[in-house]
Amino acid sequence: MPLARPDIDLDQMAEEFRPKIGFKVRRQLGPSNPDWEDLVNEILAQAVDKIRSGEFRGDSAVGTFIYTITIRRIADYIRHKSRVLRHVPEPSTPADPAEDAEREQQLLRLADAVAALAPKYKAVLELYYFRELSREETARRLGISPAQVSERTHYAQRLLRRRLGGDFPFLVRPGD
């Protein structure tokens, strides 16, 4: 009979992995899918059960173990959904207006902060993010190296975090 790993704090594990699972689920199913939160809870519950029952023996990292559960559950969801939808058309789910408004406010404030960045950071964000040029093409147009393109996007990110941290919960993580 396998034993549960006593060194894993399940509460801490849930706190650490909930946003990561949520990120992967939303990215895979689309941000407006109404089932995403339920799916995240199911995945977490499944991970906790498997750790408690000793099914996770520590042969891989906890992150890899939970990632595997996540992608399998997402695949199951898509398979199940496509079976169900073949027989019964799904009614469209209206978006949550309050959530949409809050998200829009956050994006607006973030956009204003981007607009206030120094020109050399704005130029990189315009070519690389907005016009979606390749890193090499962006570098060529700005007369810098491709590595500097990445460095400037990362540094712009740091500046934005510094300026907006308090106003942007999704930009502030524990340990910042």
Partner: peptide, 21 residues
């Protein structure tokens, strides 16, 4: 993961409001 979350937010803001920025 933090870097991805932050870059994703900036990318979303730039994609949506880039015309103005």
């Amino acid at each position: 993961f933090r870097d991805v979350s932050e870059h994703e937010a900036v990318l979303a803001a730039v994609r949506k409001h880039g015309g103005r920025i």
